[in-house]
Nucleic acid binder design. Structure first.
Lengths: 218, 218
DNA sequence: GTCTATACAACGATAGAC
DNA sequence: GTCTATCGTTGTATAGAC
């Protein structure tokens, strides 16, 4: 994973410690997450990142070299989130427990880390130039594995037979929309910003429709 | 609608006919749809739009003035698509017919006009600076109206009581993901590009889960 | 090791040529 | 009416100062 996502560090000997360095890099990454989420990769500028981070523009280039290097580091952090949200769904689990837990976890990430979700979204929309290897390898294999779990559950009568890949596409879409399209959701609900209770209603609604829709008895 | 979306034309007297004009503007809009979809608003350049349109960069500015004017025209066309995909869902309709038709129509747009869907997505992700009035007025009211339809259906025992707004968020997300996240879907399915049959499976799966999940008997 | 002055390419936009 | 030469600004990145 890291091999795929991180830019080639070449032969950098020491990981370069230093308190100032660590703090500045952290500020830059945090600022970059904001800017990349709002402007996309091409639209983001190192000047805006630097301003939010409270540094001079050239200073940002000192720590990261290129804009792409910043982006890759942000993306790497986001993939970590994804992998963690995957949880561990196995054939031994009860779908009546595992699926609601998965939906809840994904939706809570939409609440806690909407910027990360939006950067992931724009990366996919622009054709996933950075994330393509992740999608074709790790994610492809993960879904292939979980597809077997769903087929097992269906064979055991624990759920209806459902096209397993599309089952996950639906859950991902229905949960991430509360981060990526949060603006639209809020506008339609007549709110300025989404509240805690909106996410609770979302969890309930998505869980209810998916569970009953797939014939999983709770 | 048009009042909201179109830039203020001021007091332009004649709509300026001309075959060359019409053809060039059409080329520019088509090219812009591609570039905005891939790069986002900020990342798109008039140079790239011009190159794809087969015109000089300055020529693009001659016809549209500003980059934002091009964007607004592209967005206006996309909103038309949305409004058309809405169809007319009324309390008199049978949900067993109206809902599957709506899902199918939304998914077919993802197949036919993926670029439009992606531009809509990035516009929302960046905070909907252009589309905000549309979201807060037309779309808000449309959903409020359809919410009453769903409550009517539930009261008549034609479907389960479901949080109506979130019902639409789920359908929008689950159908648009095949355009916006087409790259991810294809990668996970192990395909280079999505085929006709992938969309058919998607329609079946989404329809099946939503219908049964909401207790609508077909 | 940290930060800034500066280079130079590409940006959106327009004044003026055809 | 249509198109192009050119402008001022801002983009990423680096060479060199602290």
């Amino acid at each position: 994973m890291e091999r795929i996502l991180e830019a080639d560090d070449g032969d950098e000997p020491t990981p370069r410690g230093g308190r100032i360095r660590a703090r500045n890099k952290a500020h830059i990454i945090a600022a970059a997450e904001k800017v990349f989420a709002e402007r996309g990769y091409d639209g983001a500028t190192t000047a805006e990142i630097a301003e939010i981070a409270g540094l001079a523009k050239s200073n940002v280039h000192y720590y990261f070299g290129t804009k792409e290097a910043i982006y890759r580091e942000v993306i790497a952090g986001i993939v970590d989130l994804w992998l963690r949200a995957f949880g561990d769904i196995t054939a031994n689990d009860d779908p009546a427990v595992a699926i609601p837990a998965y939906i809840r976890q994904k939706l809570l990430y939409s609440r806690k880390r909407p910027l990360a979700s939006r950067i992931f979204a724009t990366e996919i929309i622009r054709g996933a130039p950075i994330l393509r290897p992740f999608l074709e390898l790790e994610l492809h294999d993960w879904v292939a594995d979980k597809a077997r779990v769903l087929e097992r559950w269906a064979a055991d009568g624990k759920m209806d037979p459902v096209a397993p890949h599309h089952f996950f596409f639906l859950i991902w879409a229905a949960t991430q929309t509360y981060a990526d399209f949060g603006t639209q959701v809020a506008a339609v609900l007549g709110r300025k910003r989404l509240k805690e209770e909106d996410f609770e209603t979302a969890i309930e609604t998505v869980t209810q429709i998916v569970m009953k829709g797939c014939g999983i008895r709770r």
